[in-house]
Write a protein that binds this DNA or RNA. Structure first.
Lengths: 318, 318
DNA sequence: CGGTCACTTCACGGTTCGCTGAAGTCGGTC
DNA sequence: GACCGACTTCAGCGAACCGTGAAGTGACCG
């Protein structure tokens, strides 16, 4: 699976014929055929068959078509990024947990990048369980997620702001303002954001200890979407306490009391160790503890359109 | 930039020393050093320097650390996917536009996969402008997005359900229920979802024709988050009409009248051409027009937790 | 100032890669 | 059945790749 082989395959898929692929790449027909042959042998799949009207692909051939373009693109991007770095283009690579990514990261990064000129930020969502590997392998400069004892022992960590998750329901929902008996947990629908899928996350743990069966757990594309569903009165969602105070006061939403299951945490920034931080990471680490940053973490959650680049987003159902 | 070179680099980064990297990979120290040397020459970057306490990486070296792991992982994944395909594992590759991904895809796919057994679905978010290339390059099986004349001419297209986007504000907002004079558009904050970033998208076009300056456009991580912000009375958001009828009736939200700028569309499925569809894609194409599917497209937007796999999600600020 | 350690560079061999031209195979068509 | 076009296979050649051991460099230490 060398780059040249993949390029040959992509050209064949694009043109639907080896001959025109050979013309595009400026090589002989035999060269193309050899590359395809090598891929067929290595992957043990015929990839495609020729028929009267064009090529017919095997399932494996189709997947290779998707991935080979991605592989070549990623290689090209790597080359470009390394060169850009040499030209002084600064980049801060940030790994954050799902909940922080949705509510706090945009506002915080927006504020941070307007201070620091000519700095690009790459935000990737990962479970807190991956933080140690990401940092140890220098694959990310800084990680932000909930305070976890294990991580705090292994890594240089800076806790900077506390948050609280509250279970909420529509005001007219029968549990509104009342106490949830653990035995009844399975009687309700739990409306969740992607954060709930992170095994080891705080929400995941809570649902486990309440014994909520999987068929009662619905996952939405965002925590905000889950909350919107809860407003219609169809179940229990988790919200950041400071973001729903208004709706709780106006009695559009109501909390649910789950005894012994307070869900609160502390946003914590993790670095591999204090000296090894990149300058931009060290700067952000200092910045998160300032009053303005803490304010942005809690409230703001938007970016100016000119600074926001499209996101890659892949979800799998299986 | 061969796989062997990248593996050597990853090992060096991981261990912080060439020697232990050589041990891990079971080769001589010189082999490692040669690979690193080749990378240094090709990328024209020293990548890292040795100091008293460990390695110090150049900015380019750090980016290479991130990407090399991704490259190797993607290659491994490609191999695994092709083999899984040969074993009969079915996969439907779906490219959908941002708005459809957020509101309609989860419900629709949830319903579809419960009917079809042993089918995995890969959902990727792309702008409608990329659909033609994605389909022509066999990188996706089916695309779903707004009806666009150009695409409908080039591709096999099946329109299946109409939707309407309405500009909404909090009921107490000064524009509530009134007409927006185009000249005043720049006086308001426009609270947007990721869909607004897709150039050529319907929202992007509307804002352009109204002449809303970029500093008045705030992008949130999801359309639902933008709507939540609009509820607090801080600006204008776009909502799917059928999802806010309740709140409009209860006068929690109000519409804004923007003369000559009705934003409505038709969700349309695109395939490269009718005969070349994969069986799963053809099945979904038939399915989307059924009453149950149209219902799911409009209302449901959640998946059962056991079927929802974590999503890869990268955002860039520049 | 010599020794040690870790990395780098070098020369060299075996293997693989990438390509070519020539010959062979396979369908479809007349 | 012969022909044609498109793909595949083959032998062979030069270049690049991957590895080795040996020699060289540079920082640190006693």
């Amino acid at each position: 699976m060398t780059p040249t082989q993949l390029r040959a395959y992509v050209a064949v898929v694009k043109h639907g014929a080896s001959k025109s692929a050979a013309v595009e790449l400026g090589v002989s027909e035999a060269a193309i055929s050899n590359h395809i042959g090598a891929l067929r042998r290595e992957l043990d799949d015929t990839l495609f068959r020729r028929t009267v009207d064009g090529l017919v692909f095997t399932p494996g051939g189709l997947r290779l078509a998707t991935r080979s373009v991605e592989l070549l693109g990623l290689q090209e991007q790597t080359r470009a990024e390394v060169h850009a770095a040499a030209d002084g283009q600064r980049l801060l690579r940030l790994a954050v947990s799902s909940l922080f990514a949705e509510y706090s990261a945009p506002g915080l990064i927006q504020l941070f990048t307007t201070r620091a000129n000519d700095l690009r930020v790459e935000l990737a969502v990962h479970g807190a369980g991956e933080f140690t590997d990401l940092l140890a392998g220098r694959r990310t400069d800084l990680a932000i997620g909930p305070a976890v004892g294990e991580l705090q022992r292994e890594l240089h960590s800076v806790p900077f702001v506390r948050y609280q998750l509250v279970p909420v329901v529509a005001a007219r929902y029968r549990l509104a303002g009342r106490r949830l008996h653990p035995a009844d947990a399975a009687a309700h629908m739990w409306l969740l954001g992607p954060a709930a899928v992170e095994t080891g996350g705080v929400v995941h743990r809570l649902l486990g200890s309440l014994g909520v069966p999987e068929r009662r757990q619905l996952v939405f594309q965002s925590g905000e979407a889950a909350l919107a569903e809860a407003r219609t009165g169809s179940g229990i969602a988790f919200a950041l306490a400071h973001r729903v105070t208004g709706e709780l006061r106006e009695q559009k939403l109501a909390t649910v009391d789950i005894p012994g299951h307070g869900v609160h945490g502390t946003w914590t920034a993790y670095g591999v160790d204090r000296q090894a931080l990149t300058p931009a990471a060290a700067e952000l680490l200092r910045f998160v503890s300032t009053p303005r940053a803490m304010q942005a973490t809690l409230s703001g959650s938007a970016a100016h359109i000119s600074r926001f680049r499209p996101s890659v987003h892949v979800t799998l159902w299986s």
